[in-house]
Nucleic acid binder design. Structure first.
Length: 197
DNA sequence: GATAAGATTAACT
DNA sequence: GTTAATCTTATCC
């Protein structure tokens, strides 16, 4: 059984496909919630859209660490977003988790985002961090370990995956490194830009 | 020291 | 569809 680090020590666009369908298990005081990853985006050190493009900084240090760890950043003055680190140590790359769907422990997630419809609970990168209660103190957390574990599942068939350009970026906006599971009601937005329909 | 932009969301027209 | 909220970081005087 290969370790998480072994599987994710690869190009971030490959890892972004691999992570579709994977589970995240989050232990809270009141129980465990499980979610399934349905939308990802890849970022790489050679990619002008990546936080790591201009080299390592205090903020991005986690992305330069070993694969299979967490990178959480704070943005727009109020939101956190989480990534799975990929590639070699010293190479700043990772996969942004853009949307997940609840598998179990739904009420634990709802408690963190009260009043939201079920499909609005985790269909965006900052919503996921709210529902799973993640902030920058989780930077570099090893995803093999509780209370937040990443469990990989077999790679989905290519015909279940849709590939498009990434959302909410201005640089390298033409790079088709967004991936999501076809027909998932939890994907963060309607797609206008399908590369592999 | 000042300023602008940002891997977003929710509320509004 | 448009826009306010809100603050860290990078870049530019």
């Amino acid at each position: 059984m290969p370790s998480l680090q072994d599987v994710l020590n690869t190009d971030s666009d490959v890892a972004a496909r691999t992570l579709l369908g994977a589970f995240l298990e989050r232990d809270f005081e009141k129980g465990t919630a499980v979610v399934r990853i349905v939308e990802t985006e890849a970022y790489d050190a050679l990619d002008p859209a990546s936080h790591t493009y201009k080299g390592e900084s205090l903020r991005t240090a986690a992305m330069f660490g070993p694969a299979g760890r967490l990178y959480v950043y704070f943005t727009y003055g109020m939101h956190y977003c989480c990534n799975v680190v990929t590639g070699d140590v010293g190479h700043g790359a990772g996969v942004l988790i853009r949307a997940v769907e609840p598998v179990s422990g739904l009420e634990l997630l709802q408690a963190n985002r009260p009043g939201r419809k079920q499909t609005d609970l985790t269909n965006g990168p900052a919503k996921i961090c709210q529902a799973l209660k993640l902030d920058t103190t989780w930077n570099s957390h090893d995803l093999e370990k509780s209370p937040l574990r990443l469990i990989l599942n077999p790679m989905l068939d290519a015909d279940k995956i849709v590939q498009t350009t990434r959302i909410g970026i201005s640089r390298a906006a033409d790079v088709p490194w967004r991936f999501y599971i076809k027909n998932s009601p939890y994907v963060s937005r309607i797609v206008t830009n399908i590369t592999n329909p």
